[in-house]
Design a protein around this nucleic acid. Structure first.
Lengths: 131, 131
DNA sequence: GTGGGTGGTTACCCCAAGGTGAGCGAGCAG
DNA sequence: CTGCTCGCTCACCTTGGGGTAACCACCCAC
């Protein structure tokens, strides 16, 4: 976590939530996983800039927090799929207003007529990652 | 900011918003300022654990981001009051679902019948800080 | 045998966020 | 004269999250 144990995470909802999404890439991962289940290498490609070590670490944190589910398929090229749990979907929903606020008030000016509100323009072809 | 320039903060609403509330104490400050305007020393007392240096720094960041307003009264014991701008109030509103999610899914179990949803039990007497 | 792709782990280093403590300039209480 | 309050600022120092790179074991295609 970027912020060492957020103060009062044990009795304040916002602080607790913040401590869960704390980590440079967590919201990006949440965003990618919201689309559909993803594989490790897929996430690495979709979220440019993340290192394998940190990707593995943050996925593991999200898993122990009950946000993502990790499914290992015992095939011959090993395969692992990460997906959002119901809890994770709730979290993403709870993050939506924040994203709305950000796009409305902070973003320079772009894609103002586009999709729902998140990040990806609804017309996205190959590009799919939010940040 | 705890996380060095969140990836894609320039074209993703959530990342942009996260970069604004990034900082160990920002959400606590937001919470305290939502109640009413506060003075510097007041905030220091309300948010236990924060150092003066960091308090000043994060308030300044919030100010340059247009989240809080800083009013200096040129009196003889110097007085400075911080308050939320409309933008800051919007931000706080956008954070509410996140707080709801946190209290519902993360908090051990406490004050479940209490106030609105944020942090403070509606019956708060002297205690008033959220985290 | 060489390269690529699979999903990781390990060791090591860096830097910025945050903590610590001191000081300041004016005024008032004792 | 000393100390206390208020709202900071300035030097340090520490901490740990994140980056870098090497390595592993297994298999397939060339």
């Amino acid at each position: 976590m970027a912020v060492a144990r957020r103060p009062g995470a044990d009795h304040c909802g916002i602080a607790a939530a913040m401590s869960v999404i704390d980590g440079k890439w967590k919201v990006s991962l949440l965003w990618e996983l919201e689309q559909r289940p993803r594989r490790f290498g897929e996430l690495r490609r979709l979220v440019p800039g993340v290192s394998e070590k940190v990707l593995a670490a943050q996925l593991r944190e999200l898993e122990t927090d009950g946000i993502v589910h990790r499914e290992v398929y015992d095939e011959v090229p090993p395969r692992v799929e990460y997906s959002l749990t119901p809890l994770g979907q709730d979290l993403n929903a709870a993050l939506e207003p924040l994203g709305e606020w950000g796009t409305k008030h902070l973003l320079p000016d772009s894609a103002q007529g586009a999709g729902p509100v998140g990040c990806i323009p609804a017309s996205a072809k190959a590009v799919s990652h939010c940040p």
